[in-house]
Design a protein around this nucleic acid. Structure first.
Lengths: 254, 254
DNA sequence: CGCGAGTTTGACGATTCTCAATTTGTGTGG
DNA sequence: CCACACAAATTGAGAATCGTCAAACTCGCG
C-alpha cells in the first residue's frame, strides 16, 4: 500500500462519506458531489468533555451540532431556577435547533458523557441548502424528526401514571439505541436519575422506585446506570396502561 | 373610483399582501416581488366548518395550512385509543408540520371553530423556498417557532402541580391572543374543558376545579368559555409555583 | 321550551411528592 | 491497589394532590 493511498484513506475516513452516523445525519440520501460541498463547511470531530456546553441560553444561533458519539441533554431553566430537561440527544441527532425560531438559544446543550460532535455553521448550512434541493429536503426532514421526538416526549408526559412514563422512556430509549446500531436491550444510561426525573416530570425518588418495581417484576435488570431489558413485550404493555401484576399475563381490555 | 381600480383592490385584498396575519405568516419580511411568487401557489381562504379535519393520521404530506381565523387543535391517538392534544393553533400559525419528519401525518388537524385557512402545497413551497433565500429563512423561522410552542408545552407539562399548569396555560393563551391583535385579558376559549385537560395531561374535572379556584381567588373571571384575566401578575406568579392564598401578597422565597 | 352536551361540584381513594436516613457507586489520592 | 470521600441512588414513612365515580346543573341549540 503506497503512502498516498493511506493518506487518501485517512482523508476519507475523516469526512462525512465514511461517517458511521451518515444515514441518520444530514448527508442521508444526498449525492456524492453535493456531499462534498456539505463536507467543506462541516467542522469535524470536535472533542467535548463531560459537562461541557455547546451553547447557553441566550446565545445567538451560530451553528447546529451533530453528535457523532456520546450523549447530550437540552435543558431550559424555568423562572424559579429549576432545570427542566427538554430532550436527550444520541449519535446522529442534531442539537441546537431550538434557536431556529428566535435566532437565540432557548436552552443549553450539555454533554452527558465525553463526546465528539460535528459543528455546522448555520449561515453556511442555510446558504448551501438553498443551492442543493436534496439537502434542503433532508434538512426539513431532520428538523421534522426532531419535532417527532418532541411529540413523543409530550406523549410520555401526558400519561399520568409514573410507571407508564418510565416504561415508555426505557422502551423508546432502546429503540433509539437500535437506530444507531447498538443493542436495544442492553445499554448504559448516559443520564442521572435526576435528569430522567426532570425529563419525565417526576420526582427522582419516583423514578428510582419505578426502576426497582420493573426489576422486581422481572421486566428489566438494573445496576446503577446499566440497564437490561429482559421482557420488551411486557415493558411495552406496561407503557400503555396495563397494571403490572408481577408476571401474570393479565390482558388489558380493548 | 373606476371599475378597474375596484377590481385591483379586490384582487389585492384577496392576496397575502393585504392579509391581516401577514407578519406572523410566511410572507413576513419578504420583498414584494418574491411575495407574488408565494402568492401564486397559495390556495387562499378555504372555509372550514367546526369539527372538520385538514388531515388525518397517516395522510401523506400534501400541504401545510395557515389559519387565517378560527382555531384548530392537533390531536394524536395513543395505542389505547385515547385522544391526546398536542397543540392548539390560532390565526397565523402553521398547521401540518408534524409530517415533515416522516412524510406522513402523525396527528389530525381538527377545526375547533368555523375557520378559514390558506393551503400551501408542500412540493411547491419547498421548491419556491429553494429559489428565494428570504423565504427559506422565514420558513425555517416559522418552523422554529412551532418548535418553540412545543417546548413551551413541555414546560407546562413538567410542572407537577395542576394549578400551575392551568395558570400557565391561560397566561400563554393570553399572550398568543395579543400576538394576533386581540385582547390578552378577555377572550373566548375555542376548546372544551376536555381538550384543555388532554392538552395539560389532567383530568377534566381537575381543569374545571382549577378554573373555579382561580375565579374564587379573584385572578380570573370565567363563565363557560368566556375568560377574563383580572390579575395577570398574580396569574403568572401562580404559574411559577407560588401558593395561592386567596389574595394575600405572600411572596415565594427566592 | 326542552333536550343534550358540556361543565361544575362532592366524596373518596390511590398515587406520588416530600423529608429523611441509608446504601451503593465513582473517582481521587496516598 | 486500596482506602477514603463525595456524589448518586435506594428505601421508608407520612401527607397532600389529583384521579375516579357519581350526581346536579347550565348553557346553547334545535
Amino acid at each position: 500500500m503506497s503512502d498516498s493511498s493511506v493518506l487518501d484513506l485517512i482523508k476519507l475516513r475523516r469526512g462525512c462519506t465514511y461517517c458511521s452516523v451518515r444515514q441518520l445525519c444530514l448527508p442521508g440520501g444526498i449525492g456524492a458531489e453535493e456531499l462534498q460541498r456539505l463536507d467543506d463547511i462541516v467542522q469535524r470531530r470536535k472533542p467535548i468533555a463531560r459537562g461541557d456546553r455547546l451553547f447557553r441560553i441566550g446565545d445567538p444561533l451560530n451553528a447546529v451540532y451533530v453528535a457523532r458519539d456520546g450523549a447530550f441533554k437540552s435543558v431550559s431553566i424555568s423562572e424559579d431556577g429549576e432545570e427542566q430537561v427538554l430532550g436527550f440527544h444520541l449519535a446522529g441527532e442534531l442539537i441546537g435547533l431550538d434557536a431556529l425560531g428566535s435566532g437565540q438559544h432557548r436552552c443549553e446543550g450539555v454533554a452527558l458523557t465525553a463526546a465528539t460532535v460535528c459543528e455546522i455553521p448555520y449561515d453556511e448550512l442555510s446558504r448551501v441548502a438553498g443551492q442543493i434541493p436534496s439537502l434542503q429536503q433532508q434538512l426539513f426532514r431532520v428538523i421534522g424528526q426532531s419535532v417527532d421526538r418532541d411529540q413523543d416526549h409530550l406523549g410520555i408526559l401526558v400519561r399520568r401514571q409514573a410507571n407508564e412514563r418510565i416504561a415508555l422512556f426505557l422502551h423508546s430509549l432502546g429503540e433509539r439505541y437500535r437506530n444507531v446500531g447498538q443493542s436495544d436491550s442492553q445499554f448504559q444510561l448516559p443520564m442521572s436519575r435526576e435528569d430522567i426525573a426532570r425529563f419525565l416530570g417526576l420526582a427522582l425518588e419516583t423514578v428510582s422506585r419505578g426502576f426497582t418495581r420493573l426489576q422486581d417484576d422481572g421486566v428489566i435488570a438494573v445496576t446503577g446506570r446499566r440497564v437490561e431489558i429482559v421482557n420488551a413485550a411486557e415493558l411495552l404493555r406496561l407503557a400503555h396502561g396495563a397494571e403490572s401484576s408481577a408476571g401474570d399475563g393479565k390482558q388489558k381490555r380493548a
